[in-house]
């Protein structure tokens, strides 16, 4: 059986500010509109770790506790997400392999893109162990 999941998320400055507060990552590119306006981005951008969190959450919703217990996620941030962006986060299961101990290794591709476009903001791969 293969699993596929798609989530949608909205990027807002409030969410970016909240992540900055809880994480301690107060890099001005994320939270200082005046500073960010003078950069090549022309405005604030979301923390890459917010996208990483969305990818992980999509995996958690797909595989439940198995993800939190045994997951491995590797992601590359390709393009920034900005306030106002609508995101589509997808998990696509690619491989299931039974190991000698009877557990099953699951490998997935994950992606965060701008909803309704082909623009990929973060891509990666994930691995976890399931028992069924």
């Amino acid at each position: 059986m293969t699993e596929n999941t798609t989530l949608t998320r909205a990027v807002t400055q409030d969410r970016i500010n909240a992540y900055a507060a809880v994480s301690g990552d107060r890099n001005r590119i994320h939270i200082d509109a005046d500073f960010a306006a003078a950069t090549q981005f022309g405005g604030t951008i979301a923390h890459g770790m917010i996208l990483f969190g969305y990818l992980s959450d999509a995996l958690s919703r797909t595989y439940g506790a198995a993800w939190d217990e045994s997951g491995r996620l590797r992601a590359r941030f390709r393009s920034p997400a900005r306030p106002g962006d609508q995101l589509s986060i997808t998990v696509q299961e690619r491989v299931r392999e039974t190991r000698s101990d009877g557990t099953i290794e699951v490998r997935c591709g994950v992606e965060c893109s701008k909803a309704g476009t082909a623009e990929r903001l973060a891509t990666g791969d994930a691995t976890l162990t399931v028992t069924e």
Partner: peptide
Amino acid sequence: ALPDGCLHASQEVIMARPI
């Protein structure tokens, strides 16, 4: 301390056991 304008290029996490 991160320099101003520092950007995140990639990230990886591997769970060795449940936390």
